[in-house]
Amino acid sequence: MTRPSLLIMSFSPLQADARVLKQIRLFTPLYDVTTCGYGEAPEGVVAHVRIPDHLKAWKYDGKPLRVRAYRWAYWKNPVVAHLRRTMPRGTFDAILADDIDTVGLALHLAPRRGVHVDLHEYAPRMNEHLPAWNRWVRPFLSWMVRRYVRRADSITAVAPHIAQEYAARFGLGTVGVVVNATPYHELEPTSVGEPLRLVHSGAARPARRIEDMIEAVAGQEGMIFDLYLTQNTGPYYEKLQELAASTDNVTIKDPVPYEELIGTLHGYDVGVFSLPPTNFNYEWALPNKIFDYVQARLGIAISPSPEMAQLVREHDLGVIAEGFAATDLRDVLRGLDAQQVARFKESSHAAAHALSAERTMEPWREAIGALLDR
């Protein structure tokens, strides 16, 4: 019996896109999955449409944006134009379109049973701290939501408040939530180290103010802090290296492959993340690293970002700073003791199943199933 066909489309390097890889692993046992994106074919798919490396997805002509010729700007995008020209219409039963810029193309390809859109972050306000973004890009992305996303059969986003904002701002009806959870790992909490072993993993982006986390730990007795940073080139990374080198308890380490990350984190006690609310997505972030820390059976120390704080409180996973300054994080870290951290690590262990990718992907399974299993 022929299985239904599903196209998973993302204008990203698929092998490095953890969220899209979870979709692929979820659906390849159920349907004939074709992928479209940059790089080699992921494991388990029946076919792959590789976007040529020289075509850049985020390359929109500024002139039509300035005169608000948005339809012209979208369809002249190099990737959209290439795929529109080369991919046949009416070939797939359903399409899972990742991120806002794939949606118009997914609708054009006319899948027989419909389109599900996974919007990830809140696109229109992604870089709202930049005046040029607000003037030219934000209206364009808002147009994409009204023009294309509204026509989707179902929609998901990455965090509760982001889903609510999409629904309320654009009249999208119900927007489901699939958090960026990590696959379940069969691990046990380790005993608390002496000194206390703190860790952070993530991208070295200036807007994240990683220097505040370093300053919060620098010189604190009874704790060490290791950072595994991607995007480890450029002036900002060099600045962080210099700052860490000026301390006796902070070290910046080379990043590890994602498949090795949880095992690496497991050797620590507390995962740290402070994120200043410089834009809407940062304010309401619920990032994958929080779920990485849970699967690694760590305690968690965070800034008071609402979505993260709610999760930490609900499961008793760790401590929350009073504010976003380095001094706020320093104060809450200074109050940690081994008994507390041991409790937090046990709480992560207790919540690991509930907060795993396997449990939290159900809205995707339901949405695609509604299209393909009817």
Rank of each mutant, 00 (worst) to 15 (best):
G90W: 12
D99R: 12
H54F: 12
F92Y: 15
L107M: 05
D93H: 05
D93A: 09
A41Q: 13
K56M: 07
R66W: 08
P64T: 15
W75Y: 11
M87A: 03
P64I: 14
H116C: 07
D53C: 01
V103F: 06
R89P: 00
P88S: 12
A41F: 07
K59W: 11
D98R: 06
D101S: 08
T86C: 07
I95G: 01
R89A: 03
L105Q: 01
T86P: 03
V115Y: 04
L96F: 06
Y38E: 06
G90I: 09
W58V: 00
P52M: 14
C36T: 10
P52K: 10
A94Q: 03
G44T: 14
V117T: 10
A69F: 06
K76W: 11
P78R: 05
D93Q: 12
H116Y: 14
V115I: 10
H82D: 11
H82L: 14
P111L: 01
G39I: 15
A106T: 00
A106Q: 05
R66C: 10
R112L: 02
G90N: 08
I100K: 01
P42Q: 13
R71G: 11
N77K: 02
A69E: 15
A69Y: 08
L55C: 12
P88E: 14
F92E: 02
D99P: 02
K56Y: 10
R85M: 12
D99C: 11
W72C: 02
G62A: 05
L107W: 09
H108V: 11
H48R: 09
G90K: 05
K76H: 14
R68C: 04
G37M: 15
T102L: 05
P88W: 15
T102C: 09
W75I: 12
E43K: 05
R66M: 15
D101I: 15
